[in-house]
Structure formats: structure tokens, C-alpha cells
């Protein structure tokens, strides 16, 4: 499979990374090189093999339902690039 410029743009859009027109061609080359490289996985016989999604082979621990966090609004907001009072602020969104 080989990526078209339109696909590069679509991926960039999905990933919310602005890509200038002159960046498309080099990106296309690099991404295609990566895809060509990983294409060798097509040669592995994976019949009947379950996917392994995690690094740990165990079941999940469940935490007790106790309120033990929060009430730290100032710390939560302290690193915000923009805020309006006790809120985070972003450019206006039209739904």
C-alpha cells in the first residue's frame, strides 16, 4: 500500500497536525518508507493467533470507590495557556 498526498493530508487532519503544502511530499516519502518496512509482517503466518494488546498478562485490579482526589482546581489550572476565571479557555466553538 502506498500513501497518496490526499491520504497524508487526511492523516494529518485526523492527528490535528497542520501540514504545509511543501511538507506533503517529503512526509509522503517518509511515511511510505515506514509502511514499506512494516509490510514484511504480511509474511507472518498468524492463523489462529490471538492479538496481544497489553504488556502485562493479568486481569485488572478494581479500586474501592472512595473519593480521595480532586478539590485542587488551582493546581489543575496552573499550567493552562489560557483561562477565564476557574475555567480553561479556548477559541470560541460553534456547535
Amino acid at each position: 500500500m502506498s500513501l497518496e498526498p490526499a491520504t497524508v493530508r487526511r492523516i494529518a487532519k485526523l492527528a490535528r497536525i497542520r501540514v504545509e503544502d511543501d511538507e506533503i511530499a517529503p512526509l509522503q516519502t517518509q511515511l511510505n518508507a515506514m509502511l514499506d518496512y512494516v509490510a514484511q509482517l504480511g509474511g507472518v503466518d498468524i492463523t489462529g493467533v490471538e492479538p496481544l494488546s497489553g504488556g502485562a498478562q493479568m486481569a485488572m485490579r478494581l479500586r474501592e470507590d472512595t473519593m480521595c482526589d480532586g478539590a485542587i482546581a488551582e493546581q489543575i489550572l496552573a499550567n493552562a495557556p489560557d483561562r477565564a476565571g476557574e475555567f480553561f479557555a479556548v477559541p470560541k466553538v460553534i456547535e
Binding site: V38, L41, V44, V49, P51, S53
Partner: peptide, 13 residues
Amino acid sequence: DAYYLRAQKVRNL
């Protein structure tokens, strides 16, 4: 399926 799922299966192998 072609990439991620396959890679996970290879990971299992």
C-alpha cells in the same frame, strides 16, 4: 486489521 491487529498477533508470537 492489516497493520495494528496483525502487529498485535505477531507480538503474541
